[in-house]
Design a protein around this nucleic acid. Sequence first.
RNA 1: GCCCCCAUCGUCUAGAGGACUAGGACACAGGCCUUUCAAGCCUGCGACAGGGGUUCGAAUCCCCUUGGGGGCACCA
Length: 508
Amino acid sequence: MTDTPVRVRFAPSPTGYLHIGSVRSALFNWLYARHSGGQFILRIEDTDQKRLVEDAVDDFTRGLRWLGCQWDEGPLVGGDYGPYQQSERLPLYQVWAEWLVEHGHAYRCYCTEERLEAMRQTQVANKEQSGYDRHCRILTPEQRAAHEAAGDPSVIRLAIEPLDGSTTFHDAIRGEITFDHSQLQDAVLLKSDGWPTYHLAAVVDDHLMGITHILRSDEWLSSAPLGVLLYQAFGWKAPVWAHLPVILNPNGKGKMSKRFAVGADGKAIPVLLKDYIAAGYLPEAMLNFLANIGWSLDGSTEVFTPEQAIAAFDIAAINPAPAAFPYEKLLWLNGIYIRQLDDDELYRRLLPFVAAGLGLDEAELAARPELRAAVPLIKERIKTLAEAAPMLTFLFEDGPLSYADPQELIGEKMDAAQTVTALQQTAAMLAALPAWDKESVETSLRELSERLGLKVRQLLHPVRTALTGSKVSPPLFEAVVILGRARTLARLAAAEAVLRDDKVSSKL
RNA sequence: GCCCCCAUCGUCUAGAGGACUAGGACACAGGCCUUUCAAGCCUGCGACAGGGGUUCGAAUCCCCUUGGGGGCACCA
């Protein structure tokens, strides 16, 4: 345990919606905060004005809450270390950037974009190492005065020092990591418009907000020494760094991009949390799934609660290797969680999805009895909430079904005539049934199949197809009950007629 | 190109020198159950990237090679 209370943060940039990889980073931070009884802070890093996406912050807060990772400080909830939006903290960064200049750890650079671009071109042409040539680092006081007098715009750059040294820091997942200073850039800390870059803003905020552990994506590893040097320059106590392994495309090729990901079968899969939400994944499944990428509860337990994860979470146990996104496993897990829900709860969650899938108004759907009755029938058959609607359309169709291929109505090892007879008999039997419940329907149909000398599956095939429009459907006896006697008899008659017509036409 | 990180079944992982005949899970294949499809249960398939060391002993430690990933902006 640490001597000071643990404070971790998730600091997304509102340049896009919540990416599934970011969500994993947020989750690990949250798990660690809860594990150690510390605070989880949400901070918005909106220093790139050009790429701002208007409703991104809303997407972040909704996504995090959907997952169940509530932050202790940040947007919507406040806190003692605010504001939690970097655009509202500009003076802070300017003050600290100035401080660095005054203390010789940073310097103003007056290089124009044109000069920088020309320098890059030359470096590429000569196959030299790329990077800023530190032109303005060695300006004389007179030269600086001249630039200032001329009103030339400037940025503030970090002065890497010593230039021939190296920086070593400890990563809680990977151990000691050393970077030679010859590889480091005199990175821009404050842009010419007075806004900070990530390097400055993150360090200033992490320090001012009392962040003790920085768990962030592996992509930041290369710029970590900049952060270390900055903490040193400021004379601040450095936090613990832990760089989380990146998540790769499911096919293992390249990291999952902001825009799309490639599945194992080469097809695209969603990358944004909101798309997973819309596809009908459960938050409890998503949390469980994400926690299992780069970390595991005990190596053998696949399904576990947030409480279990919190209790067992350990930064040092995180696997440093990049991981392909195991999409198939998410689907499987989601199915597990769906089956764990009780029927009323599943019904509640299904409502908006089925309404959307069927093109019905949610209130209208809720007023009907079919969906609630069908929940137990589809529970074991869906892996996402969105998959329910297509299986249930036959229950909400009030008119006759269309049978694209009448041949599909014909039962196994049966002909059209036999099928017609079977459908007729079924209709007659069901019409006369005294009670309309599952047992009565099942008993009568089983008896009928015996009487007709058919296997149950043989009889049920045409009945199923006639009633549902498909060879595949939820369990038939229950479906018949939900469908009701009127629609059942109407469909049986319609199917029989279609088969007759088809038989006639094929004989002509 | 340069720097950094990583390396166990197809995939997610367990394994922190002897308990490894390398465990679990997804996927896949077969079987059972069965009114279709599922679900469930059972069985099977399947890995320590390669090469050198260190050690009585290496998946575990070191080195090299190879492979994969990430980063090299007035973006984060």
